[in-house]
């Protein structure tokens, strides 16, 4: 896979974005990039599966629940859909938090 090209593409557009894995509980955001991490890693297979289950650029997303044991996995809402995923996968969804919603909760 042309990782170099993807990384290049990534570098251009992550300004102001955070990953779904870092979004705190109850926070709302807009999905901006599916299939790429903040540091530019890409995973085609995962990207496809994220798209297929309902993650899509331009959709509203909200972190609804976090696991009682160590905060991983998380459950998020996209439209009316509730989707459970581990933070490892959530890192591949880049989001723009709502302006009034501060970004918090580091990844680990």
């Amino acid at each position: 896979m042309d990782t170099a090209l993807r990384t290049e593409k990534a570098a251009a557009s992550t300004q102001g974005l955070t990953s779904l894995a870092r979004l705190g509980p109850g926070r709302q955001a807009m999905i901006k990039v599916v299939g790429r991490t903040l540091d530019g890693r890409a995973d085609g297979m995962l990207e496809r599966r994220l798209l297929e289950i309902g993650f899509e650029e331009g959709r509203e997303v909200e972190v609804r629940h976090v696991s009682p044991f160590g905060g991983d996995p998380i459950a998020v809402r996209v439209d009316r859909l509730n989707i459970a995923l581990r933070r490892g996968e959530a890192a591949f969804v880049l989001v723009a938090p709502r302006p009034d919603e501060p970004v918090e909760t580091p990844e680990t």
Binding site: L50, I53, L81, N82, I83, A84, L85, R86, E89
Partner: peptide
């Protein structure tokens, strides 16, 4: 490799 955990909560 660990596999993705990704599922819909119906």
């Amino acid at each position: 490799l660990s596999q993705p955990f990704l599922m819909e909560l119906p």
